[in-house]
Nucleic acid binder design. Sequence first.
DNA 1: ATTAAATGTAGTAATTTTACAACTTAATAC
DNA 2: GTATTAAGTTGTAAAATTACTACATTTAAT
Lengths: 297, 297
Amino acid sequence: MATKNNYNEVFDASMNILEKITQHNAAFSKSERKVAEVILANPQTAIHSSIATLAKMADVSEPTVNRFCRRLDTKGYPDFKLHLAQSLANGTPYVNRHVEEHDGPEEYTKKIFESTMASLEVARQSVDIPTINRVVDLLTQAQKISFFGLGASASVAHDALNKFFRFNVPIIYFEDILMQRMSCMNCTEDDVVVLISHTGRTKSLVEIAQIARSNDATVVGITSKDSPLGKECNLVLSLDVPEDTDMYMPMASRIAQLTLIDILATGFTLRRGNKFRENLKRVKDTLRGSRFDKKND
Amino acid sequence: MATKNNYNEVFDASMNILEKITQHNAAFSKSERKVAEVILANPQTAIHSSIATLAKMADVSEPTVNRFCRRLDTKGYPDFKLHLAQSLANGTPYVNRHVEEHDGPEEYTKKIFESTMASLEVARQSVDIPTINRVVDLLTQAQKISFFGLGASASVAHDALNKFFRFNVPIIYFEDILMQRMSCMNCTEDDVVVLISHTGRTKSLVEIAQIARSNDATVVGITSKDSPLGKECNLVLSLDVPEDTDMYMPMASRIAQLTLIDILATGFTLRRGNKFRENLKRVKDTLRGSRFDKKND
DNA sequence: ATTAAATGTAGTAATTTTACAACTTAATAC
DNA sequence: GTATTAAGTTGTAAAATTACTACATTTAAT
């Protein structure tokens, strides 16, 4: 029981207290709302104030502030301050992170960095570790690995090619739909096909999944679990990243997918051990010839 | 002088307290080190403990804990707890983020996500906003935009193609070195060439920069400022992301580059205004035909 | 052996929390 | 419509917890 509570505590800590305050607003009493306003107006001041100062600022009594804290599932005022401090630490994630029309370069740069980091955090929490482990297992045992994606996900597949190519394993990558199909028709049961699609609704990718499976290949989907593509896959690595629909471009999901590729590549090298690490180093060294030496410029 | 102190305070605040503890280790006294150990061993417990409990855990007296806090430039124990809470909120960035040989899937997944987020934070702080603004300016006025990269940066260029293609502006993208060269020979002064390279030492890319400039095109480098490539560019967008050399693969830098592409694309649409937004929506709508409808599955 | 630094003890000050009383509001009966 | 009561809200004052200060003691260094 103590463990369970502890877990919940951690979970709550990851949730933003400031958002919680705004959401909880209706359930507050008149005086509690006064406290909420003062805190939301200047959270930075709040964490450096004592309960007495804050009570004065909100023009309420000290116990009211205390009751306010408890209503938000904190142990009391000091605990509330701790939660508040954590919320403020995460690059002010309570403010609107969506880019707006009148935003200048400073604003949109900040917002995009922050929303990207936020979606990585979400992705991290949603990703299923056992599945990652199984996929790494499959990849290390595969005789041939294919990476296919279309549109924005094509560049993710491209990146996967770049990474896995260094492992000295046969890697297949095509942008062309027909080539992808033909390649899958030649699959065997020792092959792994990784299909990348944020929505999981791209028709030709779903078809490719079917072709690959009918040839006994193992199909891994980096896509949404309940999508048509997801249903056709042997294993699905899903990333619950809320997509920024404002911009009509997949941004956050693609970064999360790339990070997942990094993770798979890392898992791959770790599984293969030191011998393979040396191989990586050798591949890197061969690139030297095409580069300017660091010391000669 | 007051300003300078203020700046340092801001700097210190943004700096992780846990890292500060480890770095400061030499300056601690014997008992203070005991306190440091207890906190580093279990920071989550520390923020929920009173000064008395913590003192007992470290087997020292309460004032020692208090002195320990002050030595780290905090006002006292409660203030220290606030800083500690903030540090823990940022995805525990104090722990060793480098993947190690014996790491299991849970560990390396966590570490890669965290190090990716951390490098985005570093990138965000290092990026030069006025340069971004100028690059967006150039891109909106360009008659033709080219994106070139090699190796790992090729997929970044690929991604840029995907994004900017939707803007209905002539976009050039080649993976082939010779095609890149030929393309640059046909440049005019209204063209913008964006070259992507983490190291900035890839010979053929430097040559391409020279060719493009000799044809009066504007060359933008997403690369390191002092690199051979950087020196050949009209404008350089540098991202000071410390690369993970352990894995012999560029990971963090590429994510930062992609985020930068997102930012440029966003800046581009914002500059072009609403008329262009509609165009984006149109491009997105045409994709519908190749997709399974969300309601029909 | 002397001095400076480090650590702990005990008392004090600050802060938070609790218990209870006063007040407000809303609902029901008259 | 007014009185009555009950539930909920807010504040006061005292208790409990927590953190801090001054000073004494110990430890280490020269």
